[in-house]
Design a protein around this nucleic acid. Structure first.
Lengths: 336, 336
DNA sequence: TTGAAAGCGCTAACAT
DNA sequence: ATGTTAGCGCTTTCAA
C-alpha cells in the first residue's frame, strides 16, 4: 500500500509523466513502442492512478448519489440495484444515501455534489434538497439531478415514474372484474405523490364502475409491513368488511397477510388482496401475490442514462418519462 | 452551481486563503474577529469546501467501500444499513459495491481504495480481492480492511461474525427438543464458510443426540429463495420425508414455504421449518418463522468501528470478533 | 495571529 | 510524438 505515483512510472519507463498519462488515457497519441514501455512500467510498479488527482483536475468525481428514503424497502432496492448496474457500466460509482425519511439527511447528501464528492443526484423523494427560487427556472439552480418515483412539485425537473393513476385503476378494475364491490384501500404515506396518484386511480375506477366508496375503508398509512398489519386489523374490526383489499405496496400487502392469517382469514378464499410493486418476494408469498409490477430495471437504467445526459450538458427532449407497468395476476385475488 | 472557492471567500473577508482554511478547520488558531469575518464571508458566498482538494491534500477520501455479494439479500441489507449509519456518524460515506458474486467485480471495488477513492474496505466475502504473498503477514500487504460474515481463510485479518457452528447447533437442538428425529437441511452456497459452519453445527447436534443423518436429506444449494423452493421440491419427492427442514437462511425458508404451500403441506402441522438470519420479513411469514437472529446492527457497527481503528493505524486487541446470536422461536416449528 | 509558498497527483495547453 | 509548464482547491510548513 505504498504510494506509487505517475512519476514513478515515468521514471521507470524513462519518459515524462505526460507521456504516461497519455499512454493511459489517449493511447492513440503515443507511439506504439513508448506505449508498451509505459504499460510495462505500469505493471512493474503496480501503479493505479490516484482518482482524487484526476477528479480534481478534471472536475469530475465519477460518483453519483442516490438519495432514497429507505434503502431496505424491497422495491427501492430493486431500483437501486439497477442504478448501480447502469452506473457501473458507465464507469460511475453509486453513493447510497439512505435518509430514513429525514429531510435534513436529504440535504446532507445533496451537499455531496456541491462538495464535488459526486457529480449528480438521483432523488427518490418529493422533497427537493435545495432551496430554490421559484421565480427562476429550476434547472439553473440545481446540480445535475434526476427525480424518480416520487415527483417533486417543481416543473422542469427530469422525472421518471410509472403512471400511478392508470396502474391503480387497472388494479381496481381487476378486482371489480372479479366481482368485488366492497373494496378497501390501504395507502402509503399520503404525503407521497405516488400514494396520492394511486388513490386517485382507485377513485376513478370505482366511480367508472358506479361503485360507492366507503371512506372508512380508505386507510391512510405508510409503505411499511407494520402499517399493512395495523390497517388490516382496523379493517377486520368493521361490521361491513370488504371482500378485497388493495394495498399500495407489496410490503403493505405482506403485513395485510399477517393480520389476515392471524385472525383466521384465508387468502383469497375469505379476502382478496392486491399489492403494488411486484417486489421479488411477491411471487413467494402464500398465496403468491397479485400485484402491479413496476419496471424497476428500466426505472434504474433510465435514471442513470438521463442523469448522464444532464451531467453532460445535453438538453433532454422531455422532462417527464413514464415507463410501462404491468398487472400480474397471481393467487391472492379470486373471482367472487 | 457556479464554483465558489476558498479564494472567493478570502477575497470577501479580506484575508488570505490560509486564514480561511484555518478559520474552518482550526478555529482556535485565528482571532475571534477574523473568524467571524470569515464565517460571514463563507455564508455570503455560499461556500462549501471542495472535498477533492481536501482529500488530495490530506490523502483521505472520507469514503469506505462495502463489498457485498448481493445487496438485495435482506440479511445483507440489514448489515448495510447499520454500516451506513455508523459510517455517517463518523463522517464517512459508504460506497456500496454489489459484486453479484463475481470475484472480478470484487477486485474492481477493492481498486477503489488503491485509487484513493476510498480509505478502507468492509468485505462480506471469503475471497480476498488482492493477491497477497502468503509468506508475509497479511496486514502489511493490504489496505485497511475488515472482514465480516464470511471469513477469509487468511490469518490476521480482523473479522466480525457470529458463531455459526453454535448457532446451527442451537437451532437443531430446538428441533430435536420438539421431538424431531428426521431432520433435513437446505444449505447455502457450500463455498461459503458460514454454510460450512452451519452444516458442522447441524452434524454436531445430530450426533450429540445420537440421531442418524440421512445424507440424501442434506441438500446443497445457495442462499436464495429459488434454491429454497427447488430443494424443498426435491425433499418432498422422497419416500422418507423429514418432519422438519432447517434452512440456512430465511430467504431459503421463504422458498421452502412456497414449495410446501404449493404441494399442500401446512407449516408447521405437516412440516416444521427453521430459518436463519431473522430478516425483517421473517416475523411476517405465514406462519411467522422460527429462526436464528443475527445481530445485524451490532455487526455493522463493529465493522465500521474496527475499520476506523485500522485506518487510524491502531492495533486491534484481537483479530476475531464473535457477536451473540439468538434463537427466535415463532410459529413455524411444532412439538411432535 | 496571519500570510507566502510549496505541493498533494494528475491533465491539458502550449511548446518543440 | 513527446516534453514543459501551469494549475485544479486545498492544507501545511515556514517565516514574519
Amino acid at each position: 500500500m505504498s504510494s506509487i505515483g505517475i512519476k514513478d512510472v515515468a521514471a521507470i519507463a524513462g519518459v515524462s509523466i505526460t507521456t504516461v498519462s497519455r499512454a493511459l488515457r489517449n493511447p492513440g497519441r503515443v507511439s506504439k513502442a513508448t506505449r508498451e514501455r509505459v504499460l510495462a512500467a505500469v505493471s512493474e510498479a503496480g501503479y493505479t492512478p490516484n482518482k482524487l488527482g484526476v477528479s480534481l483536475r478534471t472536475a469530475k468525481s465519477g460518483n453519483i448519489v442516490a438519495i432514497i428514503p429507505d434503502v431496505g424497502d424491497s422495491f427501492n432496492f430493486g431500483v437501486i440495484r439497477a442504478i448501480e448496474k447502469a452506473a457501473n457500466n458507465h464507469g460511475y460509482s453509486v453513493l447510497l444515501g439512505d435518509t430514513h425519511g429525514s429531510q435534513e439527511r436529504e440535504r446532507a447528501y445533496a451537499e455531496m455534489v456541491r462538495s464535488r464528492h459526486a457529480d449528480g443526484v438521483i432523488l427518490f423523494s418529493q422533497h427537493l434538497p435545495f432551496d430554490i427560487d421559484p421565480q427562476q427556472p429550476a434547472a439553473q439552480q440545481m446540480p445535475p439531478l434526476v427525480n424518480s418515483c416520487e415527483p417533486v412539485a417543481v416543473p422542469g425537473i427530469p422525472t421518471v415514474t410509472i403512471d400511478n393513476v392508470a396502474a391503480a385503476r387497472e388494479a381496481v378494475d381487476h378486482l371489480i372484474g372479479y366481482g368485488h364491490r366492497n373494496i378497501s384501500v390501504i395507502t402509503g404515506d399520503m404525503e407521497s405523490p405516488s400514494s396520492q396518484d394511486r388513490l386517485l386511480g382507485f377513485r376513478q375506477a370505482m366511480q367508472a364502475a358506479g361503485l360507492a366508496i366507503n371512506e372508512r375503508h380508505v386507510i391512510h398509512g405508510a409503505y411499511t409491513v407494520e402499517n399493512g398489519q395495523a390497517s388490516t386489523n382496523q379493517l377486520l374490526l368493521r361490521r361491513d368488511r370488504p371482500s378485497a383489499i388493495f394495498c399500495f405496496s407489496d410490503e403493505i400487502a405482506l403485513g395485510c397477510y399477517s393480520s389476515l392469517q392471524e385472525h383466521g382469514f384465508r387468502v383469497p378464499a375469505d379476502m382478496s388482496v392486491m399489492g403494488f410493486d411486484d417486489i421479488r418476494y411477491a411471487r413467494h408469498f402464500s398465496p403468491p401475490l397479485t400485484t402491479v409490477a413496476q419496471p424497476v430495471e428500466a426505472i434504474g437504467t433510465y435514471c442513470v442514462e438521463l442523469l448522464l445526459k444532464v451531467m453532460n450538458g445535453e438538453t433532454l427532449e422531455k422532462t417527464r418519462y413514464i415507463l410501462p407497468h404491468e398487472l400480474v395476476v397471481r393467487g391472492s385475488t379470486r373471482q367472487l
